[in-house]
Simulated scan of single mutants.
Amino acid sequence: MSTHPTQFTKQKQFLVCVDSDGCGMDTMNVKHERFFGPLAADEYGIKNRETFLADWNRINLFSSTRGINRFKALVLTLIEAQEKGEDIGDITALTDWANNAPSLSNASLEAEVAKASSEDLEKALVWSKKVNEGIETELAGEDKPFPGVLEGLTKIHSLTDVAIVSSANSEALNSEWNRHNLMPQVDVVYGQEVGSKADAIADLLTKGYAADEILMVGDAPGDEQAATVNGVFYYPILFGKEEFSWERLSNEAIEKFLNKEYAGAYQEKVLGEFHALLAQFD
């Protein structure tokens, strides 16, 4: 049963951190295709929706920016839309906030709106809240873990501590993971409220794990970066090959990790596959 990060204490020598959308849960594509992109197009009055949505999906799903924070993705896609002639108004305040704020969440955006109200910040907040509402009310029952996740997590949790490290909000994470009986295999949840994934791993390092005793499991370059800046290991879930990736994690990679044989050639091999997959779309 998971606890809040402030109450979490280390139980085992090793820790495995797992991202949710697109990694543990098969929810990433549907969230972007049904909610994030279309609701952004609605909110900003996009005329050429087909082009905008194709750009949104490329930026968020099929490129080296896969998994980027929603507000950074919004800025990137709106800038492309502007360059293609869309009239979306002034997004200077939103761009500055998304590029410089220490935390990118609805709560931090609400605080920014209260401090320095501007139309583009308010519009982004409305959009983000509509996305959360749509996901929570319409997606329940459609979300599911990738094949092999429950079996893999059950095996891994018998050997290591397990943390969810995600940019989704904790309420949604608890709802989805409990609905599919995954939460009993999780010790602690780090959602967007805690900060970035890098912040989450940094906090977990203070719990007493050595850097070579933490493995971050994710599906996006941001997950790899969060691991790298903290000096911990990274294992990629390859999009389109999720079942294979989970099977390899639980049957091969976890053993390498626990035996302290993950560094070097093995990690280079799995990272090479990950980078080659992303390069196909850039």
Rank of each mutant, 00 (worst) to 15 (best):
E252I: 08
K12L: 11
P147W: 01
S108R: 05
W177V: 02
R248E: 13
K197T: 12
A220V: 05
L76T: 10
E176D: 00
R49W: 02
Q192Y: 05
N181C: 00
S167D: 14
C17D: 05
Q267S: 14
K31W: 06
S128Q: 04
A124C: 04
S105N: 13
D55A: 13
A265I: 09
Y266C: 07
L182Q: 01
Q267Y: 09
N181G: 02
K144S: 01
L125Y: 08
Q82I: 10
L249T: 05
D42S: 09
F281T: 07
Y44Q: 09
S167L: 08
E255D: 15
A226G: 06
I91L: 03
V270I: 15
S103Y: 08
P5K: 06
L150W: 02
K256T: 07
L78A: 09
E224K: 13
E224Q: 14
I214Q: 04
E151Q: 12
E50M: 08
L74E: 01
D21I: 02
I79A: 09
T154Y: 02
A81N: 09
A41K: 07
K269H: 14
H275S: 09
L159I: 12
R34A: 08
K207D: 00
W127L: 14
R70Y: 10
E110W: 02
E151R: 08
A211E: 15
I156D: 00
A276M: 03
P102Q: 07
I156Q: 00
K12N: 12
E142M: 13
T154F: 03
S118F: 07
F14I: 06
L139N: 08
I201N: 09
N169W: 10
Y190F: 11
K123C: 06
L15V: 10
I214D: 02
D21K: 05
I46H: 12
T9A: 14
V229A: 10
V131K: 04
T95P: 03
